[in-house]
Design a protein around this nucleic acid. Structure first.
Lengths: 207, 207
DNA sequence: GACACTTATCACCATGCGGTGACATTGCAA
DNA sequence: TTGCAATGTCACCGCATGGTGATAAGTGTC
């Protein structure tokens, strides 16, 4: 009997490879690393998992591809944020913290990477971390320019604290809609948080 | 022929139940929620997984038991931190942030709960979160007493930021030994971070 | 038209998981 | 002693996973 034509697929290697990459990013962004596996990705991409091994050499290679993709995407998002000259170091850090908050809030993929970096530091997530850290560091170096922090202040430590807070708050909000009793759902909630961040940064670096 | 005596086990229900609970806490603290399952726990406890179902009604019940256990433990650790009267609201918050940092740094179980709360908000971890939040809120209420924050400052938001930073930094340090390029391994590293936290809190609430 | 090559799919394996029913052993009580 | 409940162990099921070899369906070339 005439077998129904099973291979309805497009038979275009590049296209399928792209769709696999897209599916992988979706799975990661929506479900996190917990469900990040060949079966899940192949299901979403609508193709056989074998192709993941053929075109990416397995999950590791796929993660690397995601890393490269993420770095490019990140560079694109960071570019418009590099306003040429902030007048003071404090103003710069404030701008940086608030920009990072907005960027992170929009990017669920990066949220998941941050979340899982702490929870399950597998070699898989480490690859992604490296890709992100490289771009971020480069950006911060560029944007800082020649500005120096005020004397007597441990700027690296202070900045790490601010960035840590931003990350934790965005990720927590995304997962639970609040942090430690502080609601983080509406735009007004975020406005309020941003004001507090601004106040903190100005409090230590000067207004 | 004479079967070797298989049941070398102690045949003491309470003792076995306790050993299961202990094993569960160990698995959670050392490996996180990723490996938190009946097989893994039973292996570590050295008993059959069936007993987990019999004595705790499955993983959910076991998680609840861990929650209760954690709440008690937490109350015990929090008690000596309740120094009766801080002179100013700023000094109080500083004390609170630094105490929380030390406590969290010592308690791997709580680190894992924080980490997985963001990564995989399963009903399992939600139970644990609730147990922790209840105790923490109660403690903060007690320790605050009648002190009021300075006018013009959104204290809840600021405090959430500080606590968020502490959590993220401790958890990241535990997983990677650093955060955003800031090393967090030696006591000197932590001393440095604490100084920065102090400076930030004093910067906004006044010294 | 016949051939080789690429693309895609399927069937299968071993492993580990959560979960359950049946069975052996012990100790207490009538 | 006999019976029974409590404690502990084992064998098994269904399912999902990561991974691999064989096979079918299209596509370009001579």
């Amino acid at each position: 009997m005439a077998k129904a034509p099973p291979p309805l697929r497009s038979r275009d290697r590049d296209a399928t490879a792209r769709s696999i990459l897209a599916a992988a990013k979706e799975v990661l962004a929506e479900e996190g690393f917990g469900n990040f596996g060949v079966n899940s990705i192949a299901r979403r991409a609508g193709c056989d998992k074998q192709l993941i091994y053929r075109y990416y050499g397995g999950l590791d290679g796929l993660a690397e591809a995601i890393g490269a993709d993420l770095a490019a995407e990140l560079a694109e998002e960071l570019k418009p944020l590099s306003t040429p000259a902030q007048t003071t170091y404090g103003a710069l850090m404030k701008h940086l913290a608030l920009s990072l908050l907005d960027l992170l809030r929009r990017n669920r993929l990066m949220q998941q990477i941050n979340a899982w970096e702490a929870a399950a530091p597998s070699p898989l997530v480490t690859k992604l971390i490296a890709a992100r850290a490289k771009r971020m560091g480069q950006w911060m170096f560029e944007i800082r320019g020649a500005l120096k922090p005020p004397a007597g202040i441990d700027a690296p430590a202070v900045n790490a604290i601010v960035i840590a807070a931003v990350q934790q708050l965005v990720v927590s909000a995304s997962a639970n809609g609040e942090f430690s009793g502080l609601p983080l759902r509406t735009d007004a909630d975020w406005r309020r948080l941003k004001d507090a961040v601004s106040a903190l940064v100005e409090g230590i670096y000067g207004a």
